[in-house]
Amino acid sequence: MLKKIIINLILLFFVFWLSFTFFSSRAIYFNPFLVILVYLLMFSESEIQLLWILGAGILFDLFSALPFGSHLIIFCLLFLGGTYLLEHFFTKRAFSTMVILILIVNSVFLIFLQLEKILLGFFNVSSPFVWNWSGVLLQILSNLIIGAIMFAVTKFFTSRLRMNTI
């Protein structure tokens, strides 16, 4: 178990590094962490999911201009909501499930950031978040492409998935 935790912590830092610094330097609308979140919700154990959610929340908050805890709370809410959907509505681990979840998780993440901006506005605290329709669509589209690639790769290496629709 310890080996698994260490490997996941290294992977977590790598994904954070990619999302937060490497892609952010130019492709600011590109946030692959949300795809990883959906992927984990669908295919990993709950202990590992929690490790990623809490770890990523802390890492994003350490270097974010938003008040500390913003990402942690949003990721936890996405995790709880996503888990609920998977347990009650999308029980098949299918490609369509991944597409729908990426759409929902990505949209809700951006809506939460916008809601937080409005909320902070009441306390005269500024938020750097900018709701930009082209950026929103670009982010969702790019994440769907990454999700499709990850699904195809996973399907190639494992028999746990089925390329069917709901």
Partner: peptide, 14 residues
């Protein structure tokens, strides 16, 4: 500069 953040703001630098 560490990042431009994940808040979709092209004018932000950390």
């Amino acid at each position: 500069v560490i990042t431009r953040g994940v808040e979709n703001n092209p004018n932000q630098l950390i």
